[in-house]
């Protein structure tokens, strides 16, 4: 979590032209939220510590460059542009790219209603992606006893590869391949050794329906899911 420390130096920065007080080194997503500006995030979540900035959905503008807010730390005199129409459209385009790159069949997905990608699509008012659907040929890994990995839905956010470890402090997931062949590989032996609690944890950590608990399926009706209003 981006905790504010009494010892940290107080600075002033500009958010969309408005001067606000910040603490040096403060995470920009959290800082903006504290001042009532909601920057959309997908790979980032509150309390994750150092964010990897993989999805770029939190893109803002600083010094005429596009930068990810989740990896940016507050510095004295920063002038950040966040809520412009072109930036909103850019973020929407990034979400649309994720939808066409994978095979996201929301009506049949166990994570529907609890999915961060779906939630952002709706929040950014995506009715249809502007890009062509690729229908990439991906597989499902059923090899582990307690979890399955649905590559069709994976957005390569790195949450599971970098923010999840088993009881021995070993990573269970890792990247394999490069470019369009990049995918997440699951260590079956370590995955089989996970406690029920850790399985639930990693399913929750996955922002989409890529990591699922075997034998669970749908456990809550429409209307009672995370993002149902």
């Amino acid at each position: 979590m981006n905790k504010l420390s009494k010892n940290t130096k107080k600075i002033n920065i500009l958010l969309d032209g408005k001067e606000v007080e910040a603490q040096e080194g403060e995470n920009i997503v959290e800082l903006a939220k504290r001042h009532g500006i909601d920057i959309p995030v997908l790979c980032y979540y509150e309390g994750m510590g150092e964010c990897l900035g993989t999805c770029r959905v939190c893109t803002i503008r600083w010094k005429r460059h596009h930068v990810s807010a989740c990896t940016l730390k507050a510095e004295e005199g920063m002038d950040l542009t966040i809520e412009t129409e072109d930036l909103k459209d850019l973020r929407k385009a990034l979400i649309e790219l994720l939808f066409v790159e994978g095979n996201h069949f929301c009506p049949s997905c166990e994570k529907s209603g609890d999915c961060d990608l779906q939630h952002l699509g709706l929040k950014l008012e995506m009715t249809v992606p502007r890009f062509h659907y690729r229908f990439n040929n991906r597989s499902i890994n059923f090899d582990a006893d307690k979890i399955l990995f649905e590559h069709n839905r994976c957005i390569l956010c790195k949450r599971c590869t970098h923010k999840f470890e088993d009881d021995n402090g070993e990573r269970v997931f890792a990247f394999k391949g490069k470019g369009s062949n990049l995918s997440v590989e699951m260590n079956i032996e370590r995955a089989n050794g996970l406690s029920e609690e850790l399985v639930d944890q990693v399913v929750e950590l996955c922002p989409v329906g890529a990591i699922l608990k075997k034998g669970k399926g749908f456990d809550r009706p429409i209307g009672k899911r995370k993002y149902d209003e």
Binding site: N103, F105, C106, P107, S108, T127, V128, P129, Y133, F135, N136, N137, R138
Partner: peptide, 18 residues
């Protein structure tokens, strides 16, 4: 107007696309 997921992205019938 495209009405619904199938019109918009093929929907469940498009599960056969691979």
């Amino acid at each position: 107007i495209s009405l619904g997921e199938c019109a918009i992205m093929g929907g469940l019938p498009a599960l056969r696309n691979n």
